[in-house]
């Protein structure tokens, strides 16, 4: 287990944790925040996999614009999931 693999394992663990958070939050705003964190970590993972172009695209579009679009959509609809 080289340090590099350990680093990757930690980032991937973070990815899984944020993904679980996304699906478990009933509050859509919290889910959007978790989605932003997910995008951040995904970008770091691309960076580790030697794909800087993809990392830039994911950072710019995932962290900035997708969050903005999700927030606007939540504002345009409603914040909480309906109960059944």
């Amino acid at each position: 287990m080289t340090p590099f693999l350990l680093l990757q394992a930690l980032v991937l663990l973070g990815l899984v944790v944020t993904a679980v958070l996304i699906i478990s939050f009933k509050d859509l705003l919290a889910a959007a925040i978790a989605f932003a964190a997910f995008s951040l970590l995904l970008s770091l993972e691309f960076y580790l996999l030697q794909a800087p172009d993809v990392a830039i695209a994911e950072a710019g579009i995932g962290a900035g614009l997708t969050t903005a679009i999700f927030i606007i959509a939540i504002r345009g609809t409603q914040r909480h999931e309906e109960k059944n």
Binding site: P52, D53, A55, I56, A57, G60, I61, G64, L65, A68
Partner: peptide
């Protein structure tokens, strides 16, 4: 990022996204 697309990481998409984020 756009201008150096063929030399450093980056390119049209990424530079455009950065500029769009500026307007955002």
């Amino acid at each position: 990022v756009v201008v150096h697309g063929h030399l450093t990481p980056g390119g049209g998409f990424q530079g455009g996204a950065v500029m769009a984020t500026g307007t955002a």
